[in-house]
Each structure stands twice: as C-alpha cells, then as structure tokens.
Write a protein that binds this DNA or RNA. Structure first.
Lengths: 362, 362
DNA sequence: TTGTAGGCGTTATCAT
DNA sequence: ATGATAACGCCTACAA
C-alpha cells in the first residue's frame, strides 16, 4: 500500500494542453467546452449528421481524438429509449451450432455499436417462459434472435412482440413472415441427399429421424419421404426409426434398422451425432462402411469430418443464417444498414465424403 | 394503415383501478406516485435497502407487482456509473470450449441482473488490440473474462486494468494473481496421463505437442517430460513433434512419429482434435488401436467419445472454470455474492476409455 | 449551420 | 425512516 500515490496525479505541466480541462472519462460536455461549441453540435458529429460545416466537424473530431472521448452507450440508450444490445436465445443445441450462429451474428454487427448478449434457456422447465420474459423485461434489448428448437415456440415470439422487442426466428423451414424468419430448407436438402443414395442404386434406405416435436425432424423426414415417392421407391416396414439427436440414440436406432431382414444398404441419419452413432453400430456388427452400409449425416459438424470414414453429410448454413438474421434485426437501426434485403431462406449443400458408396451386390 | 387505431386505447372503465394512472412502461415515478411515497423510497425497495418500515415496503411491492414495473437497467447504469454486463472475450478456441465456459458463466449469473456479452477477436490480426480496446471503451462492461489463448496476452490484461474494467483470465496455469486468474493445472493432468501409460508398460511414448506460443502447449509438454523424468524413462530422439491443435496436424504429426524406428507404442496428443487425427493416421497404416498403438487426448470434447475407439483423454474443467471466473468477477457486486472465495485452480480428471491398453510384446 | 431547454429513469447527497 | 433536489450523459424539440 503506497500512501503517497494518487490514482490520477494532477500534472501541472499539462496546463498548456487543453486536455488538462478534461476528466478521466471525458463526456460530450467536455468535448463541447473544449471545442467551443454546444453539446448538440458534438452530438451531431458523433451521429454523422450531415448538416454540419465541414470545418466545424474537423475541429470537433480533433478534440474528440485528443481527449479520447467515447460516447456513453448507456446514456444514449436512456435518451433514445433503445439500447445497442441484441440477444441470442437458445436452448441446448449442439455447440457447433451455437458457435456458428454467433460468428454469423458477429460478422453482421462488426463496425456497429451493437453487442451480442447470450441467453440459454431450459425449454423443458416450467419456469422457462417466465425466465425469458424476465430477461427481456429487464435487459430491454434492441431485438433478439431465436435459435431452434426454442424458435419454434409461438408463445415466445408472441411475448417478444408484446414486449416491443424485435425478433427473428431461425429454423429448418420458415417459421414466421419474412421479416421475422430466417431458415434453411431442410426438406429439400434431405431430399437431395436421398436422391443421391437412390442414384447410386440404394433401394432399402433406413431413416434415423429426429425427436418428436422438433420442426427440423419433421422437415427432414418429409424431404426423405418425398424423394422416395418421387423415385417410386417403396420402403419395407421398419425402415424408419426415431432418435433424439444424440450419439447414443444413433447407435440404438441403427441397431434396430440393421436387425431388419433384409437390412438397409444405406442409412440417412437426421444429424451428424446420430450418424456417428450409426457408424459405431455398423462397426459393432463388423460391417464395413461404405461397402456394406452407406451412412449420411446432417449438419456438417466437425464430428462428421473426423470420424472414420468421414461422413457424407448436409452442410447446414447456420453461420449464414446467423448473419442474415442479425442483419434483418438491424435493418433500419442505421441508415446504411437497410440497403439490401436479407435472404430469408438459405441454401444447404450436400458434402460428399467417404461414408457413401453404391450398395453391394445382393 | 388504419387511421383510427391507437396503440393503447384509453379504457375508461379502468378509472377505478390505480393502474389507469400508469404508462405502458411504468417507471419508478409511477410507482412512487401510486404508492404515495418518494422515488427514493421505491429505489430503496428495489435495491433491498434495510432501512425501511416493513409495511411501507409491502405496500410498494404491491404497487410494483400491480403495475408490472421493471427497473430500467440502462438508467441505473447511467446513475451508478457501472452497468450490469459482463463480457467474454475469446479467440477461436473450439466450440465445445466456448459452450462450456458460457454455461459455467451463466450458472454464476443466474438470479442476478447481469447479462453475458460475447466478443470473439482475431488474435492474429494487427488491429486486434485496437478492436478490443474500442469494444471495452464503448460497452463499459462491469468486467470481462478472458479465455485462452487470448487470456495469455499481458498487454490486453493491462488494457483492461487501465480502462477500469475488471477482468479474470482463464488458462492452463495461473496467469495472474488469484483475484484475476482461474486455471486448470494442465502440467499435472498430463503428467498423470503419462504416468498411466508408463504404468501400463509403455516406454516409447510419442508426444504431439501444441503450437508454439500457447501456454497450454507449454504446460502440457512440461507435464509430459516431468512424468517421464520422474519414472526414469529416456525417450529416443524424434518422439516429440508439434501440431497446431487441429485435426490435420494430428494426422501429420502422428505419421512422423510412426515413421520412427522403432515407432512409439503410445501417443499422447495435446488435444482431442489431434488425437482424432492420430487415430486416422493409425488406421491408414492398418494399426489397431489400442493393440498396436495407444492414444491419449486432452479436453474431453464430444469428439473424444464419438470416434472409434473412444479416446482416453483428460477432462478439462472448462465449465467449472467459467463459473468460478464469473463468480470472482461478481464478488462484491452484490452483498450476497462475496461470501465464499472462489477457487483459482480447478482439477482435471483422466477419463479412461478404449484407446489405451498395454503395449504389444516386442 | 448551430444553440437552448428539457427530459430519459435511476441513484446519491443531504436533508428532515 | 423518508424525501427533495441534483446529478449521470445523451438526445429531441424547437428556436435562432
């Protein structure tokens, strides 16, 4: 403890510089005083108001730089009634999804004053809705982005609207009108993957579907069935089982599929985790992938690339969705932001890797 | 455009209730007026001030509930000079790490008014420091948590201190004094893993180290070498190679190790991604894991559990670290929060799975 | 093009 | 135990 030290010693020599008049955290008043203008004029400078004599602006900008002045966002929020925070509300999706969407959002808000607030919620718990409501009430965010599966909750979207909080819902298919929705087209993506399998000659294709109540699960299943119907392929019974999007359920589901007689020559799992589980199940039965069994996943997480053999999978455009959703939210918040209309439906892509091949002769 | 509609129609019938006097977003003034007290008294209620007649408090709480009044955090920030946002600054670590630490932090701030703001930065870019500084300047966070590897940047910590922003640095070993650091003990964790291999009879153990400049890489290497020295094991040359923590580098590094004559009977990779790469390399050479080669990873990401065979690995306590770091940051922010001192060093754990076994006879 | 006055919703100071 | 008044730093009206 050094008794003689002071946190900001007064430096007398500084009297020659204008900085000596300013505080540690200079405010708009400090800038105004030093520049010899009113606060309002400084305000115009920091808000890029066009009606300003260029020379006045220059002078003020100089003072701002000299002082290291930074506008106080809290004060601005208070005055304008809207703050510069956008929220991401999600419910336990996988980590790659979270990271991807966060990166997309951050691309969109780079160069703005917006910051991203994260809020995971517990979809299952009874207090969830109160919890979210409380969060929205207190933080008064500019807007929020809802990640699936919680984005599918209409009541939540309703809440946001009532609270005057802008929102954009993300999903596997449009969940709302264009202004409030950004989605992929999972049905089509899975249909494409299924056509790929059919094109290679597969006719007995097992589906490991996602859990009941998930829109993504429903969409993917629809796409699967549509592609089969389109090709005139009829599946024997027992070729569709449900998993819960987790690894272990993939093992169990694949085991059930492989117990069928005859077993499928290919399995399409509705996410990569379950596809990885299917791979395990195949290995347990000494099946070689893709010789004895082809496997397709969904999401293109890093797991897909790292298992053996690397998984053919559908790349889910989560990052682009995050970017688009954030831009949609921010459209209108700043003059330059509402130029281009953001897409509401983003394309997926089939990523071919080594887990798929033609069926063995039978 | 419906010209006659008003957003909040005045409902005359409501005159009987006190609510009719309040606005859509009631403020502390509304509460004060309706309760017949001053704003300050209401402020005391919402801030749990002890000096209040219990009956006054009850009355005010009733009005608050009736009105659905929620304090405006922005206004409070302005008045108190500190806001209720804490930040997480990170630089491209893997997604599980991000999710884990976020969950830990959110456990800690649950039931408080704090919210979590995420800020990824680009460590490599020249403008990184300016970028972070700008972020801290503008958002004026209550405090920030620094995730490795960016947490190892002393200049950044210095910046935070100068800006008056509280901070806690997370890492593989203490990076700062106890008040500003939460870490694991990676050296010890790797030493334990190495002892495990030695105990099984391995003597030629290859190390796939992490990239230069990462504290975690240095710590893990130290632990490895320490355990060998402790057991009197001398490694032939060429048994240590460096990767960059990514899957592909794991393949390359393992290939180089397996090219040695004689090759190692076990490989310790400094993270799971590289360990998964080593698994690929082994498969390419038709080696069976663990019969021909044992492999150990680090982190215990989901990849570790999903590859074949499942990886023995070190569980890195990232979630607990996040929780502890957030609590440390918040200690003192509220009376009830600074009760228990938070741990600064958290234990790791060796997770035994199927990728390790005794060396084959040779 | 620039300035003045007032308000945003809260807490702090100093009263009573 | 409670209240009046003045910040906090910015922005919006309106005025000049």
């Amino acid at each position: 403890m050094e008794l003689v030290s002071t946190e900001r010693p007064v430096r007398l020599a500084d009297a020659r510089t204008s900085a000596a008049l300013a505080a540690a955290n200079p405010t708009i008043s400090d800038v105004a005083r030093l520049a010899g203008v009113s606060k309002k004029t400084v305000s115009r400078v920091i808000n890029d108001s066009p009606q300003l004599r260029i020379e006045t602006r220059k002078r003020i900008e100089l003072v701002i730089a000299e002082l290291g002045y930074v506008p106080n966002l809290q004060a601005r929020s208070l005055a304008t009634g809207r703050n510069s925070l956008i929220g991401l509300i999600h419910d336990n999706p996988n980590s790659q999804m979270i990271l991807g969407v966060q990166q997309g959002i951050l691309e969109a808000i780079r160069e703005t004053d917006f910051a991203l607030v994260i809020r995971p919620v517990d979809r299952g718990s009874p207090g969830m809705m109160d919890d979210v409501r409380r969060f929205l009430d207190r933080q008064r965010l500019y807007g929020v982005m809802l990640l699936p599966p919680i984005s599918e909750n209409d009541e939540l979207a309703q809440h946001c609207a009532e609270l005057g909080c802008r929102y954009v819902r993300m999903g596997s298919a449009p969940l709302d009108d264009d202004a409030h929705s950004v989605s992929s087209n999972d049905a089509e993506a899975v249909a494409e993957a299924t056509r790929h399998l059919i094109g290679l000659g597969h006719r007995r294709i097992g589906l490991i579907a996602g859990p009941h109540g998930f829109r993504s699960a429903a969409e993917r299943r629809v796409g699967f069935l549509a592609a089969l119907a389109e090709a005139g392929v009829t599946l024997p019974p027992g070729m569709t089982v449900r998993g819960d999007y987790r690894f272990d359920s993939g093992i169990a589901a694949a085991s059930r599929l492989l117990d069928q007689m005859p077993p499928p020559t290919a399995i399409l799992a509705c996410n990569d985790e379950m596809a990885a589980g299917a791979l395990h199940a195949a290995r347990q039965r000494n099946l070689t992938v893709p010789r004895d069994l082809s496997i397709v996943g969904f999401d293109d997480t890093s797991t897909a690339a790292h298992v053996w053999p690397p998984l053919t999978t559908v790349r889910w455009p989560i990052q682009a969705m995050g970017r688009s959703a954030a831009r949609k939210l921010l459209a209108g918040s700043e003059p330059r932001m509402d130029g281009v209309t953001q897409p509401s439906v983003l394309p997926s892509e089939l990523v071919m890797r080594a887990s798929v091949g033609p069926p063995a002769m039978s």
